[in-house]
Amino acid sequence: MNNDEIIQVKDLKKYFKTSLGIVRAVDGISFTIREGETFGLVGESGSGKSTTAFTIMGVYEPTDGEIYFKGSPLPKSVKKRPLSLRKEMQMVFQDPGSSLNPRKRIGQIIELPLRVHRLHVGRERERVKELLEMVGLPVDFINRYPGAIGGGEKQLVAIARALASEPSFIALDEPTSALDVSMQAKIINTLLRIQKELNLTYLFITHNLSLMRNVASRVGIMYLGKMFEVAETSEFFHKPLHPYTKMLLSAIPVITEEEEKIKPKRVISRGEIPSPVNVPSGCYFHPRCIDCMEICKKEDPPMVEVSTGHFVKCHLYT
């Protein structure tokens, strides 16, 4: 394995027991994230993107599979990870409203990682101000309560908190999906600027493909807990291989002729994502696939490397 691989996920599985049956939220996915890159994870709602992030972070214990961080296996639960490891990995959540304690001042919220990891001892206040400036928030936010600031600002505070422990890896779980478009742009720009400044690695989760094209260096697409295709961003958008990827890409609304040309031929989206409790046989996607063959109904295709760094899980390419 390469030295620049910061996270390696091997055959990761996370099943949940529910009253309806076992939900295979993440069902045997493997991928690597390289240092300094943004790995994008896309998929419809319920495809297991967030579960993947939570499992990597150790919020959920994986049912099976291994996660390596900088070459060494990660303890399954965050509670068993040493402080030095928790410091390295941070997360920004989807809902900025609930990610800040309403009873604490912004200053106290950002200060917590500094106190826990004993960073900048004696000058915590100054460091908090620096972090606020880094994410582009006014310094006088330090004495405000989360209730007194807007949703986008809350998300920036959450980002500042994630940065406070000086991590090398941040999982961003749909960080902009709850915000309006102007705020989205501001947050994405801030994230990209900070990534460059601090050489951070991101796991970026979204269902917004246009956003993904601008943010991610590599993209993985998930469907019902399985990874269908992993490729460099340009390759993913210009030479999509999996029928599901083609279907999603062709559904992006475009404005200009130019954009229309690079888009794959219109593939009519059929059906909806099936219930994760009651999954189809063979390839999970076959009931919706336009290229469905006999074998697809019986056998789950393996993940194959079609060209360098371009993986796809489809019988068309085996």
Partner: peptide
């Protein structure tokens, strides 16, 4: 299950700190 409690866990705060300083005031 609120994200702010999850965040404190990911940061590595002590369970007693989370119980008394994050949950109790609410």
């Amino acid at each position: 299950n609120e994200y702010f409690v999850l965040a404190a866990e990911l940061i590595g705060a002590h369970p007693l700190y989370i119980i008394f300083s994050e949950i109790l005031p609410n």
